[in-house]
Design a protein around this nucleic acid. Structure first.
Lengths: 197, 197
DNA sequence: ATGAATTGCCTAGGAGTCCTAGGAAAGATT
DNA sequence: AATCTTTCCTAGGACTCCTAGGCAATTCAT
């Protein structure tokens, strides 16, 4: 009875590869076990269960994602930084759809705070905005706009939601240019109604 | 043995309500059957199976969604139309998270083309852009930007992805204003490298 | 080197899910 | 009233998650 050499790390790594191949929600304890040529019950010695596996997959994927973003951002600022960020973002989402989906899993707040990858992603995103002259709360609004657009595009692309014949790469490039233009000329807040009696 | 009065429509309606309550991916044939006080096998007389149920739920939800958008858009154009569209979009996504998620399910192309709701959503989105002076391919790029932003925000909000204390309604309003500004002054395409030898 | 302790993977089994096949009863039709 | 159709049932197979307890492979202590 030879051993497969399972560890929590290898189980999570296998789950990550499986997620990229067959989709995150097709990743089951049984399927990962099959990949090791092992019975499903054997995995429970290394991982508490499916939700634990998904949670570990989420933090591992976020760390990998943050790494790519970090590398892309190194030494760049302003428009260059935004373009590199967006490029790295979409590349990761396209090449690692399962891992990308895992980074978007809704986790308990304390798990999220204990995940270096997730924290780093937030830091890197805000660092990107040092290149734009935005004060709070405009900065947070702008961050939310950028995050929404990048994630929305990735989600729609993954779901095959873009039907028009127009090339996706070209659309993506133009969108990023447009966002850059918007961030450099963020419209001022309209006068608040409560201040004019 | 009294009958529950099942029809495909009522099954789909029950599935839609369940999806809004417990989440789309918690909707199972068994759970819907339980809601009717009926065995799971009984549903297979009305729906071919889980994937058929999800497909029907997607088209029904898209129709409902298109209805709200349509109502919001009636008689409006330009900035007003965009604001009403965005408002209706987010309201639906927040109040009907399961149905909204169903509208984003990846369906086979022929199913999508046969779904009036999905078609109507595309039409309404392009109608919105009559108020902006954009020629192809810029229009498609702009449509993709808007769709990405709206869907991304809805997805991140549903997943609890916005941690900052800043009010979500306020961010949403500012984002829509910013997008309006962007659409009215869409940056021109950069000179193509292939045209300058 | 040999016995003990630990660790890794196993079998067995319960509960829930999707789905099929065939049976019985409620309601509609003639 | 008799027949037919529709609706819902029971029974059961395959797959999932997960627990409990057992045997074997490895490591550790003597």
């Amino acid at each position: 009875m030879p051993r497969a050499g399972l560890t929590p790390e290898r189980v999570v790594e296998a789950a990550a590869e499986l997620a990229d191949e067959i989709g995150l929600d097709q990743v089951t304890v049984s399927a990962v076990a099959r990949g090791f040529g092992v019975k499903d019950a054997s995995l429970y010695a290394h991982v508490r269960g499916l939700s634990d596996l998904r949670s570990r997959l989420a933090t591992a994927s976020a760390a990998a994602f943050a790494d790519r973003i970090n590398t892309a951002l190194a030494g760049r600022s302003g428009h260059e930084a935004l373009a590199a960020f967006a490029q790295a973002y979409r590349t990761f989402a396209v090449h690692h759809p399962g891992r990308y989906a895992a980074t978007q899993l809704a986790l308990p707040a304390e798990t999220l705070e204990a995940s270096p990858g997730h924290r780093r992603l937030v830091e890197l995103t805000y660092a990107l905005f040092l290149g734009y002259d935005l004060a709070e709360p405009d900065r947070t609004d702008a961050v939310r706009l950028l995050r929404s657009t990048l994630h929305g595009f990735a989600a729609l692309e993954a779901a095959g939601g873009f039907g028009a014949p127009r090339d996706l790469d070209a659309s993506w490039a133009r969108m990023i240019e447009a966002l850059h233009a918007l961030l450099t000329r963020w419209p001022p807040a309209p006068p608040s109604a409560t201040l004019s009696p």
